[in-house]
Design a protein around this nucleic acid. Structure first.
Length: 697
RNA sequence: GACCACUUAGCUCAGUGGUAGAGCGCUGCAUUCACAUUGCAGAUGUCGGGGGUUCAAAUCCCUCAGUGGUCACCA
């Protein structure tokens, strides 16, 4: 044995061996009970950072269950990540002095496709380097034709069940990125603005009513002024006619309970096309929806001489004009929160747009029930609160995106009878209603979460014959807590809808990996750590162990070089224990266990360790398992027992071998490479520690 | 506004009712011994503040403060 553990050689050797032997496939235990984890498909638009290495948790579970004899499947994949990827790609274009507007739809799509293919290769190699025992033969990509087919099928079924509808409603629109978003993709940030108090004159010339607004520039879209019917100040003027300033349009004062008496003057301008609450009030009072701001972010012709300006610029100009007319009573400093694009940070405009929506109420009810009844369990449990609260208050989900990268929605509009035709992807020849053959396909693509929300069954229905029947519902969905709502909750809703079964029985949520200073890793901060750098510096086993050891599972942790070093030292310790037992084995070693009380005791403690590790893993207390292993192997076994047998070495040899082999097996899910290397050098049965029998089973 | 998590040794963190723990760091000693990526020994904390329950509280309850995060959003 080498004096120094040569990690990179050994890691490459065993990964290749495992893969060639087919050990990553569930067929290695053909008769075992199924145990399934679907890898959350990483975005195929960038290399993995060290946070992705937290998926080691899934490898630990899969290796553990595989050793217990389960037919364990860990299914890998990658996500086209619609808007995210297009955004990243546009940044690339920007560096080359280009933009998305320089290409037609098909060309842009193809460019992004090639970009993604390249990144997917990088990502796969990174997963290999970390030792992940995923079944590569079942690798899927969210844009694989068979996956797309499943997603289209679900869309069509939802449409036919009346759970998907098309509606012209206010959506969250980023005029910079040129697309709408779901509610979850809007970030609200605090902003200092002015609250303007503006006089709207009565048409009969008897005076005016003062309204308060932060957005005077949308005044051209006003279709009423509303007051609270219980507001004593305004009882007498409800129903009166006003002249909308800067126009000669007449609008009325209406009463609506949703108006807060205590805010501003208690009177509010109603602009149904540009504010969510105004939209509702407008809808319920049959008010006209007048669009002032266009999808290019500029004011439209209705804004007269302000047309063509951006809202901020127009705001100042409108206020100036109103001021000259003596209609601005005052302007107060005002701190409020405005919706911004989660990606570019620019203000989100609520705009009227025809989009596809999912009526989520019936889906969310079932998703809530699945967790309430315990059919699905969430670890750590405290996330249940977040899950329930979101699903209980969820609004219909806008799944249309005005980008090119993604699955184009399989819906065609008939120009003649104005009906939508939805298919499973095949192009309809003519309208089934009116036989018209002039059909126009919706240019929008699906929200990426609509497709990834179907990932568990879409993958298993398109890998191998019988996979879905055998491996669905899956056992564990393990991911970072930040996509519990974006992804996990939606998988539950769509999974139950499409298959009648929950997509997974347990949700296991890990924490965030922060940079060494405890800051969030982000490209803009330039503090992203590539997982390969860490693997090369400390070894894959140490990198894996460092993520599990010493921090309670589910909590955030800063990447810690001291901890990585400690775990690298631990691999060194293991290597030297191995050398002591294997390389320095006495010629006259006994071939039976001795009855020495120390030997008996260490065997007993090893068996206790097996129970402890198994229990911890069953409860998803990974740090407990890792801490116990570290403490026992180093401090109980090496420091104490191993030292104590040096003067009766021959007698103790069988015990040394047995205990060490057991420790390696228990440690294997955490540190697969070094455990395999050492296990192979000890007397063993079977081809690999990977498929050795778990000590406590 | 609501919810969630966190506050323990110099630093990073375990520890959910029974005499305070780990890793790193620190102090002293050891070294042809499997391992200096080592071993042995040691120092270090009124467990965020206050109150309560209990024979017993870092741990359970209440409250206050701070930190991080999430959701909802009133012009």
């Amino acid at each position: 044995m080498d004096k120094i553990y040569k990690q990179s050689e050994i890691e490459a050797k065993w990964y290749k061996f495992w893969e060639e032997q087919g050990f990553f496939k569930p067929e290695v235990n053909p008769d075992g009970e199924p145990y399934t984890i679907i890898l959350p498909p990483p975005n195929a638009n960038a290399p993995l950072h060290f946070g992705h290495a937290m998926y080691v948790i899934e490898d630990i579970l899969i290796r553990y269950k595989r050793m217990q004899g389960y037919s364990a499947l860990w299914l890998p994949g990658s996500d086209h990540a619609g808007f995210e990827t297009q955004y990243v790609f546009e940044k690339h274009l920007e560096k080359q002095g280009k933009s998305r507007f320089d290409y037609d739809r098909d060309t842009l799509y193809k460019l992004i496709w090639d970009f993604v293919q390249e990144n997917t290769g990088t990502m796969e190699n990174q997963l290999r380097r970390l030792g992940y025992s995923v079944d590569w033969s079942r690798m899927k990509f969210t844009l694989d034709p068979d996956i797309v087919k499943v997603v289209y099928k679900t869309f069509k079924r939802l449409f036919e069940d009346g759970l998907i509808y098309r509606s012209n409603r206010l959506v969250n629109y980023c005029t910079f990125n040129g697309t709408s978003f779901s509610d979850l993709e809007v970030n609200y940030v605090e902003k200092q603005d002015k609250l303007y108090f503006i006089k709207y004159p009565f048409a009969d010339g008897t005076g005016s009513i003062t309204i308060a607004t932060t957005r005077p520039e949308t005044l051209f879209g006003d279709s009423a002024v509303a007051v609270n019917p219980e507001d004593s100040r305004y009882q007498d003027i409800i129903g009166q006619t006003l002249i909308l300033p800067l126009t000669n349009r007449h609008i009325q004062i209406i009463a609506d309970l949703r108006v807060e008496k205590d805010f501003g003057t208690g009177a509010v301008k109603i602009t149904p096309a540009h504010d969510p609450l105004d939209y509702e009030i407008g809808r319920d009072n049959n008010l006209e929806q007048i669009t002032v701001i266009g999808f290019d972010g500029k004011l439209k012709e209705v804004a007269q001489k302000f047309a063509g300006m951006y809202p901020k610029q127009a705001r100042d100009a409108v206020v100036e004009e109103l001021n000259q007319l003596g209609l601005v009573e005052k302007a107060e400093d005002y701190t409020h929160r405005i919706g911004t694009c989660y990606k570019c940070g620019k203000p989100i405009e609520p705009l009227l747009l025809e989009q596809w929506f999912i009526d989520v109420k019936s889906l969310s009810r079932k998703a809530i029930k699945a967790v309430k009844t315990g059919e699905i369990k969430i670890y750590p449990k405290n996330w249940e609160t977040t899950y329930f609260r979101w699903l209980e208050n969820i609004k219909d989900w806008n799944i249309s995106r005005q980008i090119v990268w993604g699955m184009q929605i399989p819906a065609w509009f008939c120009n003649k009878c104005s009906e939508w035709i939805v298919t499973e992807g095949e192009v309809p020849e003519k309208c089934p209603n009116c036989q018209n053959s002039s059909l126009e396909r919706d240019t929008d693509v699906f929200d990426t979460w609509f497709s990834s929300g179907q990932w568990p069954y879409a993958t298993l229905q398109s890998t191998k014959e019988g996979d879905f029947e055998k491996f669905y519902p899956t056992s564990v969905m393990e991911t970072m807590y930040d996509i519990l709502l974006f992804w996990v909750a939606r998988m539950i809703m769509l999974g139950i809808y499409a298959t009648g079964k929950v997509p997974f029985k347990n949700i296991v949520l890990h924490g965030k990996v922060l940079d060494p200073l405890g800051q969030k890793m982000s490209k803009s901060k330039g503090n992203v750590v590539n997982s390969i750098e860490i693997v090369e510096q400390y070894g894959a086993d140490a990198a894996r162990m460092a993520l599990v050891y010493g921090t309670a599972f589910g909590h955030d942790q800063a990447l810690s070089h001291p901890k990585l070093q400690a775990m690298r030292n631990f691999t060194n310790k293991l290597w030297n224990i191995g050398r002591f037992i294997i390389e320095f084995k006495p010629e006259d070693s006994a071939n039976k266990f001795s009855f020495h009380s120390d030997d008996q005791e260490i065997i007993k403690k090893t068996q206790e360790l097996s129970v402890k590790v198994s229990t911890a893993l069953d409860q998803y207390r990974f740090h407990d398992a890792a801490d116990s292993l570290y403490e026992f192997i180093w401090h109980q076994f090496a420091d104490k027992y191993l030292e104590s047998v040096k003067n009766r070495r021959s007698e103790a040899q069988p015990t040394l071998e047995y205990v060490f082999k057991t420790c390696l097996e228990l440690l294997h899910p955490f540190m697969p490479f070094i455990t395999e290397e050492l296990w192979q050098k000890l007397p063993h049965q079977g081809e690999s520690i990977m498929i050795a029998k778990w000590p406590n089973s």
